[in-house]
Write a protein that binds this DNA or RNA. Structure first.
Length: 261
DNA sequence: CGAGTACTGTCTATTACGTCA
DNA sequence: GGTGACGTAATAGACAGTACT
């Protein structure tokens, strides 16, 4: 099957032949493909993973030979997904009629989320909008925050439970936790950065102080050497404190003792 | 037992929506 | 009313880990 014939049938199965990420956008009947990457692997695999022995069951979606997603009731699911090669689809049954799906593709997979499967959301005019953004209410936000404080990651049961409490889809709870973890990490990184900056400043100051001290000591040392080169009898004055010394006194033996005192 | 495959959970980067100044 | 900045929900792709064949 050549590229052209694939295009003709609107078969959208993609493990990209190029190195670019494969992206497939399925849309409602009659819509055009926004991106197309023919697949090699998909041609040799079953379109659906129907193996009953698989631990994780395949849900009730069917992908037709034309690459269109259908629900079992035959209504077309418009959606956006990527990397279709192995057409195994898992449906995560969720609250109400909402669905979220994963489309696997060998080593990697992409998700076809409810937002893109079911909802190209229609607005009041019946126009189709992609991606309607949720705004969490204060109580929802508070409960999510509270849960996050208890544990920053949820197991599937906890996710379901929380989603039910919040009247959100589990996927939305999952995304919120994902983003929350990312924000926490970012915040931590920023704090670490600030801390390291302060530490760096402190060390720079310390370094400057020590450099100066070293320089002073070097100067002092060279003065001492100069002093030592002079005949002992001729020395009557300490070079640092300029006190007049006595050849019999300890100052002559150790002229720097006075400076230190 | 090791290799290959399928699937899941998580992370990271990015996109895009909604709000506010 | 238009616009840019910002916060953040949502998307996409990658990867590691696990279960199964």
């Amino acid at each position: 099957m050549g590229f052209d014939s694939l295009c003709d049938t609107r078969l959208v199965l993609g493990r990209s032949l190029t190195s670019t990420p494969s992206t497939v956008k399925l849309n409602t009947l009659g819509s055009t493909m926004e991106s197309f990457h023919p697949s090699l692997t998909s041609l040799s695999r079953n379109h659906l993973d129907t193996n009953p022995n698989k631990k994780r069951a395949v849900g009730g979606c069917v992908i037709s030979d034309l690459g269109v997603l259908y629900q079992q009731d035959s209504t077309v699911i418009s959606g956006r997904c990527s990397s279709f090669s192995n057409m195994s689809v898992k449906r995560e049954r969720e609250v109400g009629s909402e669905v979220s799906e994963r489309v696997s593709n060998g080593n990697s997979y992409s998700r076809v989320t409810s937002a893109t499967i079911v909802h190209d959301v229609e607005d009041d005019d019946g126009c189709v909008n992609a991606r309607k953004k949720l705004r969490l209410t204060k109580p929802q936000f508070a409960l999510l925050e509270e849960s996050f404080k208890l544990r920053n990651s949820l197991n599937p049961n906890q996710k379901q439970e929380l989603a039910r409490e919040l009247k959100l889809r589990p996927r939305q709870v999952e995304v919120w936790f994902q983003n929350r973890r990312a924000r926490t990490k970012l915040k931590q990184i920023e704090m670490d950065l600030e801390h390291l900056k302060k530490l760096c400043d402190k060390l720079t100051c310390e370094n400057q102080r020590l450099q100066k001290e070293l320089q002073d000591l070097k100067t002092l040392k060279s003065s001492k050497q100069l002093y030592m080169q002079l005949p002992a009898t001729s020395l009557t004055m300490c070079p640092s404190c300029e006190r007049i010394g006595d050849s019999k006194s300890s100052l002559v033996k150790n002229p720097f003792a006075m400076a230190a005192s």
